[in-house]
Design a protein around this nucleic acid. Structure first.
Lengths: 371, 371
DNA sequence: GTGAAAGCGCTAACAA
DNA sequence: TTGTTAGCGCTTTCAC
């Protein structure tokens, strides 16, 4: 089991002795080496104050030569700003939080802001502990993400005045600020695309109705149908579970029903979509010729491996993360936001609804006017 | 697109005015409120020094009542330890890094150590920037994760003496310390399980041979066969791609070949496994009766949705993360480690190799003696 | 144009 | 048993 482990004797060297090792350089060391005062070094490094160009350069050079790296902790202590934000995830760093984090990090890294990451997994006690820890570290802002976009109790900051954004999470507190995907718009766009393809009997297989996303997407689906003069058929709406298994089962139900087989199916996520595709294929139904299928999430491992590849609605999670980063920076600067902001979804066309093979990842962004 | 956005006027209040808002409490405030000196407060809060029990309690109470939270930055500045570690991921926070992070966080959170997270995505420039930033924040240690367990250039810390662990990543530097899954042992265990089930013609469909993991698993597979007196059949070894598509294709190749159809297939990952299962089912082969199938990764969305559910080798990534956390803590305390340590894999039994339906997630840990 | 010194919030050695 | 004080490394006025 253990293969190349090589534990060496514990390093018992005392602090004093350790200092002989590459000791942390301070601004004093640079000052001494450059033959100037620490004030001058600070001014040169921060490009502040008034300094002769030559001194400035000389100090910079010396600092570089020495490999000096200022201690952010001391800086933060003095400035009262840590250039650090917290991220509390209730998703076990899962599939939805990750793309968000990626976007968030990209934006914050530009501003030299680092992210402290914690996982609370819907446990309020751990959440509180993490929050305490983050506050102790003097974070400048906080992002909270959740498993799905449903309402959560929301972090209670008490009297603490800290910029806070919920991403892919929604708080009950009306003063809270939340960033969410536009579930309704996404479903509406996908449905309209199917209608534009000439489909009229469009079914909707989706997850449990307890999810707000399910309700919103169902709304979008109905709105799109009605906008085209199509009256939704009750039995075409099949809420259930977020699984492939349910996708298959629901298709079998639709096949067994005495009503006409749908000529298109909008699925609540890609797993359902994939199950639906499998069931259709195994029932001898041609996709997309007889039935077109659209998924939701645009999850690469699902949409590309299904047969045929699955057209899907993308919630643009990295973009949502970027947006969160941009807002957070503005909030840190003093602006205030509240309410809910929803980010447009995009539709990625693949063969399951008839996109030509070669353009299997075509990209459609429809202009949905603001409601 | 924008639905409930409610931007309010930017908060232009000056710092002074803001102070009227819940100002950050300092140890001085507590001292004043409790009617003692700051030294006493510090001793009470840190449970250090000698203090009368009653004073200690009184101070604690006052601090709690006031909602005092010490400033970790100041603490860290003084102690020269930040209780903070960095995590640089080259995986875009992907499927492998996340479970690792979960375990890591769990262990470090116990010690009140927070994690700074950065994503470098195999870009050495970004990696360098992130490293600089982390060093500036005075991290006590660093964890680096990579896309897969192949050799990477490795972070160059230069003369800096900082505890560093590579997880799911391997550096070329011989002094480096890496934590990896025991790919070879995992494949060996899975193969032995198939042999124990009475299978003799065991194929191995896997990813690109350029991956060290592919080579190691292939070794493990061969060793297991030979240990049971079975000579590996060259054509049963099918390296290719990490995709479902390749899994299907490889099975069709095996079916078309003139040699006997394998009675078991060890797959390099769950996607391949899933493709194999689909191809077998669609060719009318019964799984597990005619062919047993085992995957690798034990990725829930794959193993549970496939038909039948897929037996799979679990790399115990969260455990790997925990191990990383434990080692890192020891390294921060002064111990030194180098070389490679591999963590045992476990086999999760499901129907694809004949586990009874009800025990679809049975758990087998074989005792593989250390080589 | 540059240096000196106060102080960010905390800890720990030393005084009382 | 408690209080006082000197810094941790940095920024930023204010003198020079």
């Amino acid at each position: 089991m253990v293969k190349g482990e090589t534990p060496k004797r514990p390093n018992q060297a005392k602090a004093k002795i350790r200092r002989s090792a590459p000791a942390r350089l301070t601004i004093h060391d640079v000052a001494r080496a450059a033959g100037v005062s620490i004030g001058t070094v600070s001014k040169a490094l921060n490009k502040s104050g008034t300094l002769k160009q030559s001194t400035r350069e000389h100090v910079m050079e010396t600092a570089n030569k020495l490999g000096f790296r200022p201690n952010d902790l001391a800086q933060a202590l003095h400035r009262g700003k840590s250039f650090t934000v917290g991220l509390i995830s209730n998703d076990s760093f899962g599939r939805f939080t990750m793309p968000i984090m990626e976007g968030l990090e990209a934006v914050l890294a530009e501003q030299k802001i680092a992210i402290f990451m914690c996982n609370a997994t819907d446990d309020p006690v751990r959440e509180k502990q993490h929050l305490d820890q983050l506050l102790g570290k003097q974070i400048d802002g906080l992002v909270v993400t959740a498993r799905r976009s449903d309402h959560i109790p929301g972090i209670d900051l008490g009297a603490i005045d800290l910029p806070l954004i919920n991403v892919f999470a929604q708080s009950r507190d009306p003063r809270a600020f939340s960033l969410l995907p536009d579930d309704e718009g996404g479903a509406r766009m996908a449905t309209k695309h199917l209608i534009a393809l000439g489909r009229r009997r469009i079914a909707h297989i989706t997850g449990p109705e307890s999810f707000e996303a399910v309700q919103l997407r169902h709304n979008g689906y109905q709105v799109a149908l009605r906008e085209s003069g199509i009256e939704p058929v009750g039995d075409y709406y099949q809420p259930g579970a977020w699984s492939e298994c349910w996708g298959r089962e629901a298709v079998y139900k639709l096949l067994a029903a005495k009503m006409a087989l749908p000529d298109a199916i909008l699925c609540g996520n890609d797993q359902i979509g994939r199950g639906a595709l499998d069931a259709l294929r195994e029932s001898g139904k041609l996709v997309p010729d007889e039935v077109a299928v659209v998924g939701f999430d645009n999850w690469d491992v699902m949409v590309n491996s299904s047969r045929p590849p699955l057209t899907s609605v993308d919630m643009n999670l990295p973009e949502l993360g970027k947006l969160a980063g941009k807002y957070l920076i503005r909030m840190i600067r003093g602006e205030t936001f509240s309410g809910v902001r929803r980010l447009e979804c995009t539709l990625h066309l693949r063969e399951s609804c008839g996109a030509a093979k070669q353009s299997s990842d075509a990209f459609v962004r429809e202009n949905l006017e603001t409601k």
